[in-house]
Design a protein around this nucleic acid. Structure first.
Lengths: 184, 184
DNA sequence: GTCTATATGGAGATAGAC
DNA sequence: GTCTATCTCCATATAGAC
């Protein structure tokens, strides 16, 4: 039976879940050792830059996933299909609000990490892709530019709310409201 | 000239700003000593429960502020006036998104603190007060129940977004969109 | 690559004089 | 109440054998 984590690439998604669950500071190396099953030395062998490099790898992995599964489809696919696809992918990715957005969490986390650029890139990219999709869908430039950030904000806020109240119902309701915002 | 922080009550708002800026883990006691100007011993004299008690005091202070300035007016004042009041108070309280919501940040922070109950209370209280206001304003029960959490989510998400992109424009735009959600 | 052992720093919290 | 000094623990990270 193969090991769960046998190389650097295998570790990244596991690291992502750990950072999501415990936060950047809360994810101590000792905890990471436990949850990944990797030894301390293997961890530093794979990530010589330590915890910062681990988090950076996670952010890159998340960014790639969104680029491939959300952003690109929004810009190249049929607009209506791509939007519906976004909502369903987002719902399952964030487990209807039970799983937080690590980028959003890092954004609120302020000063403790050097990832401001990555965080900004993720959100501006998402908004830009969404805005283009709404434009291609027939919204005016004004309305598309207004709706895109509001949809992203609604999703992020719904994660906060679902987390705070332990009620995933808020999440699906917010996605429905977001879909309304994107209509002509 | 009086000291900035001379008693426990004076310390709480300062502590709030520190937790907002650095997060719960990031706000080390050493940092708190520096920023408040209080000595270690005075700090522990005022807050024998240590950092946890400091954060709890901050959350209680925030909760009282919202109760008095937002929640109660929503339930007792003229609905239209109270709503407009909420948006303007929220905008200045969160400094148009440049200041984060400490309760929202703690909600995403997951496992590192024992404040889940307080966090849930804050958001459910906000949503309940808002829902009642919308009802009194003439929305159907269905629509009020749907719009209230969406408005709160939009505000929280706008804070995330403003923080991530360093663009306060997202915040005021989100407040406008939220106001639209609360119309019949 | 992975192990055990450890260096080093800073965290939260406390003691006891004043 | 506030001071200085200090306790203990655990954090990240590294050394060096295998």
């Amino acid at each position: 039976m193969p090991r769960l984590v046998a190389e650097r690439g295998d570790a990244v998604p596991v690291l992502g879940e750990i950072f999501r669950k415990y936060g950047y500071d809360g994810a101590s190396i000792g905890l990471i050792v436990q949850e990944t099953g990797l030894g301390r030395s293997s961890l530093y062998h794979f990530f010589p830059g330590g915890k910062e490099e681990m988090a950076r790898a996670v952010l890159e992995h998340v960014d790639s996933w969104f680029e491939e599964n959300i952003f690109t489809p929004l810009e190249t696919g049929d607009p209506d299909t791509a939007l519906a696809h976004m909502y369903s992918e987002v719902a399952s990715y964030f487990r209807s609000g039970r799983r937080i957005c690590i980028v959003g969490a890092f954004a609120l986390d302020a000063v403790r990490h050097p990832f401001a650029r990555e965080i900004e890139g993720y959100f501006t990219r998402w908004i830009a892709a969404l805005e283009r999709c709404l434009l291609r869908r027939g919204l005016t430039g004004r309305r598309a530019a207004a709706a895109a950030p509001q949809i992203v904000a609604l999703i992020q806020g719904a994660i906060v709310l679902s987390r705070a109240t332990a009620d995933p119902g808020h999440f699906s309701a917010a996605l429905d409201a977001a879909a309304e915002l994107g209509k002509a």
